[in-house]
């Protein structure tokens, strides 16, 4: 990540190169195919003062904010702190994510090599980054429950998963071949914040233990 520009043709860089002398324009063109590190190389060769960091690129970052005063400001400061320039903020107040948070789309520009620091800065500040450039964060997991699901108040089980495990239930399939008062199975697809899967599974295990359910967890990590 970071080296692969998401949006952003080479406009910025071409502009930068053109601001230099005619002789360097050729260098810039020749390097244009080489990818994201063009800027800095061109810089080194042209020695222009305007773009000391090798040019900037536009990026889109999708965040999820808790609906509390000051949250937006808190989420934005890591961007400027790490050398990003805010272009626009789309604060979707009317919209709510499955976890009950507010999605915010931020357009910014920054030197490509700073982008990772910005995303890290956001995370360090406790902001949930759903998507940064082409990378989408957040994971989906499948899980199977077995037991007296219906008799044991399935809807309460689901609300506990949403609140305690902080997972959004995306869909549910129930199989009760012997009737709903016998042992049945349910497959759940859950959306979990990235990096929170282990914690979510741990909460789900304890919910399962409380309600006397057998839980078949997914095998995560590496190709299974």
């Amino acid at each position: 990540m970071g080296n692969e520009p998401v949006v952003g043709p080479n406009d910025d860089r071409d502009a930068a190169a053109e601001s230099g002398s005619d002789a360097t324009a050729e260098t810039a063109d020749a390097d244009a195919d080489a990818g994201a590190d063009v800027g800095s190389e061109t810089e080194a060769e042209t020695g222009t003062e305007t773009e000391t960091d090798g040019g900037v690129r536009p990026y889109t970052v999708r965040l999820e904010l808790v609906d509390e005063p000051g949250e937006l400001l808190r989420a934005l400061s890591p961007i400027s702190d790490n050398g990003g320039n805010l272009l626009s903020i789309h604060h979707e107040r009317g919209n709510i994510t499955p976890r009950g948070h507010i999605p915010v789309e931020v357009d910014l520009e920054c030197p490509p090599e700073r982008f990772d620091d910005i995303v890290e800065g956001l995370r360090d500040a406790g902001v949930n980054v759903i998507q940064a450039g082409a990378e989408r964060y957040g994971e989906e997991i499948s899980i199977v429950f077995v037991g007296h699901l219906v008799e044991n108040d399935l809807s309460e089980t689901l609300s506990r998963i949403e609140s305690e495990a902080e997972a959004a239930v995306i869909d549910l399939s129930l199989a009760a071949p012997d009737g709903t008062d016998a042992t049945s199975s349910a497959r759940l697809r859950l959306a979990v914040d990235s990096g929170r899967t282990d914690a979510a599974l741990e909460s789900i295990r304890s919910i399962g233990a409380d309600k006397d359910l057998t839980i078949v967890e997914p095998l995560l990590g590496g190709e299974a």
């Binding site: 199977v144 077995v146 399939s173 199989a175 199975s185 078949v216």
Partner: peptide, 20 residues
């Protein structure tokens, strides 16, 4: 405690259950 129905549900999702 794994009933056949759990394996059916797993299969609908392109998965199966193994003792891992």
């Amino acid at each position: 405690n794994i009933p056949g129905s759990a394996l059916d549900l797993a299969a609908e999702d392109g998965r199966t259950i193994r003792l891992i």
